Each structure stands twice: as structure tokens, then as C-alpha cells.
Amino acid sequence: MIDRLPPLTALRAFEAAARHMSFARAADELNVTPAALSFQIKSLEEHFGAPLFRRLNRAVELTEAGKALAPGTTDAFQMLQAAWRAAGRTVDTGVLTVTAGPAFTAKWLAPRLFDFAQSHPEIELRFAASLRLMDFERDDIDIAIRFGFGGDDGPNLYSEKIVGEWLTPMMHPDLAARFPTPESLLNAPLLHQDDIAWLRPACDWTAWFRANGLELGEIHGARFSQADHAIDAAQAGAGVVLGRITLTDRALRDRRLVAPFKTAISTDAHFRVLCPKGSEEKPQFKAFLEWLRVETCKMRDHGQGRHMVRADDIGG
């Protein structure tokens, strides 16, 4: 064996075959014939000076040397792919990939996509609706919008709070006449959102009734794992939702929902925007961030005249 690295094509063939444990599947992935892939691996073994695979009847398995080589080659090719994508993003100013939770994507971002396109026709927005933790390089993501209490996002990330969150009862206009007071809501069909059950202090129906000097008693009503589904049910007249202002802004403006009560619960949890540090100065990033700031400011009028009660101040 010599220290000089073998050809990249031979290493690529080995990595694919080791990952699939199949020459045929590896050849299909690399769009070459099985014979061509086998030749590449054979040349790699000759370069190495020892077998990397054991050829069995209808299968292959790695030798000890192959097992030592496989993890490093997989990591190396993943790093190369990430570096290639990162380099591409430095010259591609026409595409911006944004990830946000499914509810925020459906109820806030998507309805405003046309507005952004009108203002910035030179930028193509792409959305990835997900709540999982993102790796900007690995997942090919430019900007992440996340809901939570924030904290230390690390020295390599730019982080900016874009909008706070508060909740108040919302319902179809036809239901508003049937439930004119906070007391009457005790008998209303209440809709619950389990996706914010992790908030501490809690921002739920029990907390809202306590903020009004009332006790809910037995909890009843339909439960939803996603806030956007609960909002859709409320718009259909199925019940009253403790609506999150960030997700109901358009529905309130269009009168598909009304929020007739003054009391609202505010939480320290908020939406923030994250991107690799330095990216916020790039033209397409700056345009999107400024657009976010303008659009979120428009929601402030919903809070005018309301009695905001911090979740921390509601007694248990």
C-alpha cells in the first residue's frame, strides 16, 4: 500500500457499494454498469494492495480493511457535497430556501408568498415545512424560522426575534352571538392545541379562564396536534379556539374569525429567524429579513385595546 490517494471515481464506487452492500444497487445509484463499478473497485483494491470486499455467492461483505475505510469515505463525500452546495449558495442570489414549522408555513408564510414575489420578483422563495433541528449546510437551508424561548443559538448563527406571541379566544362570526361573555365560553365547544402544551407557564384554556377570574373545571372539547388544524376547525364553526395571533392574522382581517374578548395571554415564547452569521448581509437575505420585519409589524393593531396578561402572572 502507498500513501498516494487513489482516483476519486474509485473511492466513490467503493463508498456507494459499501453503503448499499450491493454492487448492483451502487451501480444504479451512480448510473454506471455493474461491470464498470466492479472494475473501479478492483482498481481500488489493487491500489490499496488488499481486498476491500469479500465476494460471496449473491452478496458482498466488507473485509476488515473495508470496514475501516467505509465510514471515512462516507463522511468525506457528505462533506464534499455540503461544501459544493455552500459554494453554490454564495453565487446564487436568486433562490432563498426557508424552513419553518408546518403551521407557520401554512398560515403565515404561504398566504404572503404572492406579496413577497410582487416586491422581489428577482428572488425565488422555497419553503421546507419542518420542526426538526436543521443543519444549514447538510439540509441546504438558508433561513430558519423557529418558535420558542430562544437562548444561546451559538456563535456561528445570526438570530433575530421577529414577533412575539399572544392568545385570545377566536371563533366564527356566527358563534360570537351565542357566546358573548367569558362566562358563556364555559359552555362552548372548546378546541385545544397540543402543539403548544410544552409552554411553561401554560398558555391554555385553563390559564385564560383564570385570567378572567373563572375556573374551567372539567376540560372538554376536541384536541388537535397542530394549531393550523384547530384554526381550520374554528373557521368552519366547529368551536372556539384559543387562537395564536401569529397564525390567525389573515383570518381575523378577512373576518373568517373574530376575537371579541379583551383578555389575551402573552408568553415569552416568540418567533425568531436564524441563518449562518454573515449571511444576513447578503442581498437576498436582507430583502427577506426586511420584508419579515414589515409584515410582522402589521399585526400590532390586533393588540390595540386588549388587556394583555402574562402567563407568568396567572395563578395556579
Rank of each mutant, 00 (worst) to 15 (best):
G49K: 00
R85A: 14
K67F: 10
A70Y: 02
P71C: 04
P51I: 04
T63E: 10
G88V: 06
S43T: 07
L69V: 10
W84S: 05
T63Y: 12
E45R: 04
G49W: 02
T73M: 15
H47S: 05
M79A: 15
V91C: 06
S43V: 08
R55H: 14
L62F: 03
R55V: 14
T74M: 02
L62C: 08
N57Q: 14
R54M: 07
L56V: 02
V60S: 02
T74R: 08
N57S: 14
A65D: 14
K67P: 01
A86W: 04
P51H: 06
L69M: 15
D92C: 02
P71H: 00
R54Y: 15
R54E: 15
Q78E: 15
Q78N: 09
S43E: 13
F77S: 03
T90P: 00
T90G: 00
G88T: 07
L69R: 00
G49R: 00
S43P: 00
A76Q: 03
A50I: 04
M79K: 11
A83S: 11
M79N: 12
A82N: 02
V60Y: 06
P51F: 08
L52V: 05
E64T: 15
Q40T: 05
A76G: 10
P71M: 02
R58G: 13
K67R: 15
